[in-house]
Structures are given as C-alpha cells and as structure tokens.
C-alpha cells in the first residue's frame, strides 16, 4: 500500500449534529433513504454523573478489508493501491458477499440499480487535494483527514499527541477511522 489515508475525529468536539451526514448525501447524491455515514451517541453513567460521546461513523477503509477479500469479482478494490476501498459498479453482481463480510455494516445496495455502494472517502475530492465533503463541512472542525504514513501530516500529529481508539479492533480489519477521546 503506497498511501494510507486516515480520518481522525475528535469526539471531545463532535456535537452529533449530523452535518457530515447531510453533506455526504448531497455531495455524493446518495439516493433517498440510504446512508454512507451516520451518528452514534453513547451515554454512560447515571444522572447527574454522566458522560456522552458522539461518533460520526462510516466505512473504515480498513487496512485489512474483508469486504475486498470476499468480493468474487474484484468489484470491491483498493483505489490506486491505497487503503481507500471502492466498488466498481460495472463489475458488481450484487451478490452481497462484501456486505456480509463487513463487520461495520458500512455497505449499502444502490437502489434501484442493485450494485453495492459505500463511503468512498470522497476520493473524487481527495484526488484534487480537497478534504472529503463531510470533513470540509463539519462546523466544529472535529474531523481531520490525511495521510497516516506521512509523519508530518495533521492526522499523524494528532494520533501522536492524543489518546484515541478505533471501532471494534477485535475484528482484525485494522480500521482507519480514528476517534480522539
């Protein structure tokens, strides 16, 4: 893998406003009723001793992407040999093996066409040096995007300087969306 892209989201600043979700739907013209990203709220404790965490979730563009491994046609592939996982609509049979293979349930079936779709990390923007739509819209600026194998990048710096976690590391998929805690 030449480039490892990562998204780093600061849960201390995220307010769960869902702007990233709407930004994705408009930027990527996601059909009505379908989602590439979503917001999870986790509240623990007992009133008034409480902690609430908001998480903007999407495909983790896993370094070990089981969806790609399971795809029988090569429709699920890595973009330009990076960790960005894309689906090639004109290779996709809609067999749904990749959906079963994703422990994060990050994939969806494009209706009415029937091929599988998912978060693309907005590679069409990344290609031009732009942040993904969700990142560039987030009003709290709690989302960061960049190259993890570039030690100078903001994302690398943040992971060096802050405590963080990923979702369900137990899956072994090595997710690349990181949450600062």
């Amino acid at each position: 893998m030449t480039v490892q892209y990562a998204m780093v989201i600061d849960t201390r600043l995220c307010i769960g406003c869902g702007d990233c979700v709407v930004a994705c739907k408009t930027e990527n013209k996601v059909p009505a009723g379908l989602n590439r990203d979503w917001i999870v709220e986790a509240t623990s404790g007992k009133y008034p001793e409480l902690h609430t965490e908001f998480r903007s979730e999407r495909c983790n563009h896993c370094s070990h992407a089981t969806c790609v491994a399971m795809c029988p046609t090569g429709a699920s592939h890595n973009w330009r040999n990076t960790n960005i996982v894309l689906v090639d609509a004109n290779k996709c049979t809609g067999c749904k093996a990749c959906i079963a293979a994703c422990p994060y349930d990050a994939r969806l079936i494009m209706h009415p066409d029937g091929y599988v779709d998912k978060c693309t990390f907005c590679h069409h923007r990344v290609e031009h040096g732009l942040d993904p739509a969700c990142v560039s819209t987030c009003p709290t600026r709690c989302m960061h995007f960049g190259i993890l194998n570039d030690p100078g990048s903001k994302v690398s710096q943040l992971l060096k300087s802050r405590r963080y976690k990923t979702l369900m590391p137990g899956t072994g998929n090595q997710p690349n969306v990181y949450y600062l805690i």
Binding site: T2, V3, V126, G129, L130, D131, V135, F145, G146, I147, N149, D150, G152, S153, K154
Partner: peptide, 12 residues
C-alpha cells in the same frame, strides 16, 4: 488535509 500533504501525496 492541507495543500502540502496533497503535494506529498501526489509524489507518493
């Protein structure tokens, strides 16, 4: 992602 990172990326 800032411009500098992108330049680096196109190199990579």
């Amino acid at each position: 992602m800032n411009r500098r990172e992108f330049i680096k990326l196109s190199g990579l």
